[in-house]
Design a binder for these strands. Structure first.
Lengths: 226, 226
DNA sequence: GCGTGCATTACCGTTAGCGGGCATCTCCAG
DNA sequence: CTGGAGATGCCCGCTAACGGTAATGCACGC
């Protein structure tokens, strides 16, 4: 699923020009022709960025922006022919993140949206999380839970587990694991992996002799039960 | 401690005008006259926003921005007389969050900075207070309570604690903490973090040898018990 | 049965984190 | 200006935990 951009613009020519510019960047564009339509679409879809023209029939851009802000932190860019300082300030005060006076270069619009996306995405560190039955892996917290109990893993064990969990069910050879967990250019014995798999099992498996999560695939490597 | 803004501008009249406008908003302004001075100041202080003029003697604004971006996510606004689309795009690509062509209205500058701060702060909720068991953190009042007793923390200890509290349970590496607490671009020993964690513990932990709140995650960093 | 590959254990050099101590810096009171 | 207290940054030595190696035992497949 790509980046979704909702545009609100009543002038068809501009709307089309904007759409083409945004699609050039590889983003998906959803178009609204009025404030009402925009708010309706916004409720029903999720957008990564909203682009609002101020001069709209019906509800104006400022109001659309404020309305969106009441229940969302989505990045908002205002685009308009009015470029008095007063309008710019009003737009930003209404909750917009950026304000771009027409006429503008499509490349500038794209660049500003990219900057905004960069900022927003760096702020929300994708708190990933895996779950396999009773086994719960929380990479952010450097933590593994079995049921309700925290299990302490060392850094190496943890990275090994996270690596296996990144593609559940897939078999990882010792070479691949050495490369990914220990780093490129590590020239050690493949037995090293065995030892750490063993240590991992004693910690997370109810019965390490009959592994439930970390399974051996003879002759190939190890995998995490999907 | 208020919002710190670092400005980089060689023209004295503009520098003064900008400073007055920013101070009107209640922000603290630190001024640099060249790219070199800016990078130097940036290393030693923390800034909440950086304002960069592109045309500078020595290192130009683009380079200053890129240099800052190499180890910081601080909001950056570029301000310049050049307003070709090409320059705007280049500025944003260099890592700036906004680009404002001169001449600009001080009110617009302030509004744009406010919008940026709003965006950045909504990402890391400086919410009024945190509570972890008996530990109560009141960032607004610069105050920490254990049970009913106020505990005195130094500025550094306090910021360290608040940073950890901003994402309870999440592991913070020494690098991240150095960046966030000591300021971007601080090039010191990672051991420094240990020292302050220890001092923090002696103050807030009932038994500093067996931490209850500030936990060590060996090989990764520290976290605050969720 | 035999060989190959995996499991298990023991061992030991290394390292990360902690605590004590010290030098410098800052900020205030005198 | 000066002295002192607190704050800050840095270094060194200690220890427990960790990572890697090797040796031995076990299981599976031919």
């Amino acid at each position: 699923m790509g980046t979704q951009i909702l545009t609100v613009e009543d002038d068809e020519r501009i709307r089309t020009a904007v759409r083409l510019a945004l699609e050039d960047e590889g983003w998906d564009v959803v178009e609204a022709r009025s404030g009402e339509e925009a708010l309706d679409l916004f409720k029903r879809h999720t957008a990564d960025v909203v682009l609002i023209d101020i001069m709209l029939p019906g509800i104006d851009g400022f109001e659309v922006c404020r309305s969106i802000r009441r229940n969302s932190d989505v990045p908002v860019v205002m685009v308009t022919a009015r470029d008095d300082t007063h309008d710019v300030v009003a737009g930003l005060e209404a909750g917009a993140d950026d304000y771009l006076p027409k006429p503008f270069a499509p490349k500038e619009l794209s660049a500003r949206i990219r900057a905004l996306l960069r900022r927003v995405r760096s702020a929300s560190p994708t708190s990933s999380q895996f779950e396999f039955g009773d086994l719960q892996i929380l990479p952010d917290q450097g933590m593994v839970m079995i049921g309700d109990d925290e299990v302490h893993l060392t850094k190496t064990e943890f990275r090994l587990l996270v690596e296996l969990a990144s593609s559940p069910g897939r078999v990882f050879s010792r070479e691949v694991l050495l490369e990914r967990v220990w780093g490129y250019g590590y020239f050690g014995d493949g037995r090293l992996v065995d030892v750490h798999i063993r240590r991992l099992r004693t910690k997370i498996e109810p019965d390490p002799a009959k592994p439930r999560y970390v399974l051996t695939v003879r002759g190939l490597g190890y995998k995490l039960q999907a």
